[in-house]
Simulated assay, not measured.
Amino acid sequence: MREMLVRFSNEESGASSIEYGLLAAGIAVAMLTSMSLLSCSLASVFNNISTGLKAL
């Protein structure tokens, strides 16, 4: 039993997958934040274009 606990505590493959999962979650949060900020400015640009085209 003790030997099995020692092997389990030395096992690092699970830690790698958890780190990759945290990294992927961080990237997803950054992408969602930047997309939400960018969408506001894009909506403004398209509204300006629409207004300009209606004036023609």
Rank of each mutant, 00 (worst) to 15 (best):
S17C: 03
L37W: 04
A24T: 14
S16F: 06
A28D: 14
S34Y: 13
S50C: 13
A43V: 10
I27E: 05
A24I: 12
N47R: 04
S44M: 04
S16C: 01
E19Y: 14
A25P: 03
C40F: 04
Y20W: 08
A25R: 13
L22Q: 09
G52H: 11
M31I: 11
S50T: 14
S44A: 04
S44P: 00
V45G: 00
S39K: 10
S41N: 04
N48Q: 10
V45Q: 10
V45H: 03
I18V: 09
G26A: 15
I18T: 05
V29Q: 08
C40I: 03
L22S: 14
M31A: 05
L32D: 06
A55S: 02
S16E: 13
N48T: 05
S44V: 05
N48F: 12
A28G: 13
I27N: 03
I49Y: 02
F46Q: 01
L37Y: 10
A30F: 09
L53I: 15
I49S: 03
I27K: 12
A55W: 08
L53Y: 04
A43C: 01
S17E: 14
A25Q: 08
L38I: 07
S41E: 04
A25K: 09
T33K: 05
A43S: 07
A25G: 03
E19W: 07
S39A: 08
L53M: 10
G26L: 11
T51F: 04
A28N: 12
I18F: 15
S16W: 07
V45C: 01
M35A: 03
A43K: 15
V29Y: 04
S17F: 04
S41L: 00
C40R: 06
L42M: 08
L42A: 04
A30Q: 03
E19M: 12
S50F: 10
L32Y: 03
Y20S: 06
A24M: 00
A55P: 00
A43Y: 02
K54H: 13
T33R: 12
G21L: 11
V29P: 01
S36V: 09
E19G: 01
S39Y: 01
G21T: 09
L53F: 05
I27R: 05
S41C: 04
F46M: 08
S16Y: 11
C40H: 09
S34P: 00
Y20C: 03
L38Y: 07
L22D: 15
K54P: 01
N48H: 06
L22C: 10
S17M: 13
L53P: 00
I27V: 14
L37Q: 14
M35L: 14
E19Q: 13
L37K: 01
N47H: 08
G52A: 15
Y20R: 14
A24K: 03
A24L: 01
A25W: 11
A30S: 01
I49R: 02
S16M: 13
L53R: 11
L56I: 10
S36G: 05
S39W: 00
S36F: 05
L22I: 06
L32K: 10
S17D: 05
S44F: 00
